[in-house]
């Protein structure tokens, strides 16, 4: 066989370079826009004043807009890559971190903390939300383990059961506590970014970044895992252990960000699908790209939430209203490529 000719015949795919540039620059451009647009107009002229004077501009810029933008980026990045990793690892384009019980676990944890310690004690709400999100994921993983093995289907089913269970507990808390606490529990559950301060960023960023970097590090193994259990094992992967690590990395990051933002829906499902639509399914490209798409999506959604009405609409409302129809559209476009 003339293998020299054959090798020359098949060329590497170069079309993806322009996507690379777009993916790197789009969050940066959106960040710039994000920082300038808002109820209180900041302009480029005042950039010097902004950074070095003691004006109100500076306060708004540094202590209101900037932490909020940073949290939007971290949230989007973490949701994007976690969703993409889980979908690929579990060979199921319909999974997201929320499916494993993370969101309802976190909501329950936050509500419990507000019920016991009062709704103004933010320091206890976050750890409690993270703790119960991880409890929920662990229960999901434990339930889905059947004869010592995970199956993606039983994992998703267990996730639904655990979510339902924690949603039930949450309703119970809401019924039992005083009305004003119920109100703040509901407010917590609707995801928002307008309350974000540097303290929130400091609390949520380290674990989120740990999760993002960990998943990036695993991206080749994630690809091989998506070949199916037996094949991955015959290619030298310790399937059970590595899949567990990937699920935990995705869960820890996700739990950490939603512990300060509340439940902002759809980003972890829609961001991976937009990315898939743009760059294809190969995790080597999909995972880094989903970081960029996730953060761009969040910046855009939060810009809309800040500017579209005379008062702030929680960003979770916007992501759901954009996300659901967009998901339907992408699903119809990609119909023959999913199952």
């Amino acid at each position: 066989m003339a293998s020299e000719d054959c090798i020359r015949y098949s060329r590497p795919n170069l079309g993806f370079l322009k996507y690379k540039a777009a993916l790197i620059f789009s969050p940066l451009i959106l960040l710039l826009l994000y920082l300038l647009v808002g109820k209180y107009d900041l302009s480029f002229d005042s950039l010097e004043l902004l950074l070095f004077s003691d004006s109100i501009d500076r306060t708004i810029f540094l202590n209101v807009r900037l932490p909020r933008a940073v949290e939007a980026i971290i949230f989007g990045a973490c949701m994007g890559i976690s969703g993409a990793s889980l979908q690929t690892t579990l060979r199921n384009p319909l999974v997201s971190p929320y499916f494993l019980g993370i969101s309802s676990g976190a909501a329950f944890g936050a509500a419990l903390s507000m019920a016991i310690f009062g709704h103004k004690n933010f320091f206890l709400i976050q750890p409690s939300a993270i703790l119960f999100a991880l409890v929920a994921v662990s229960l999901t993983l434990g339930l889905s383990k059947f004869r010592g093995q995970f199956s993606p289907v039983s994992l998703v089913l267990s996730g639904m059961i655990i979510s339902a269970l924690f949603a039930g507990f949450l309703s119970l808390i809401q019924i039992l506590v005083e009305p004003e606490k119920t109100q703040s529990i509901v407010a917590w559950m609707i995801g928002r970014l307008h309350t974000i301060t540097w303290a929130d960023v400091k609390v949520s960023a380290p674990l989120a970044i740990f999760g993002i970097l960990g998943l990036l590090y695993f991206r080749w193994r994630i690809f091989v895992l998506s070949m199916g259990d037996e094949e991955a094992r015959s290619l030298g992967i310790n399937v059970e252990r590595e899949r567990l690590m990937i699920i935990l990395l995705a869960s820890i990051g996700t739990a950490s960000v939603i512990s300060v933002t509340g439940i902002i829906g759809w980003v972890c499902l829609i961001a991976p699908h937009i990315t898939r639509f743009l760059v294809g399914s190969d995790p080597k490209v999909l995972l880094p790209a989903s970081i960029s798409v996730g953060s761009s999506f969040m910046l855009l959604a939060d810009m809309i939430s800040r500017t579209i009405w005379s008062f702030e609409i929680p960003v979770g409302v916007i992501t759901t209203i954009i996300g659901a129809p967009l998901f339907l559209y992408l699903m119809r476009r990609a119909q023959n490529e999913w199952y």
Partner: peptide, 10 residues
């Protein structure tokens, strides 16, 4: 082999 996602042959 049941293909999951559309990957390139290479």
């Amino acid at each position: 082999h049941s293909p999951g996602f559309p990957y390139r042959v290479l």
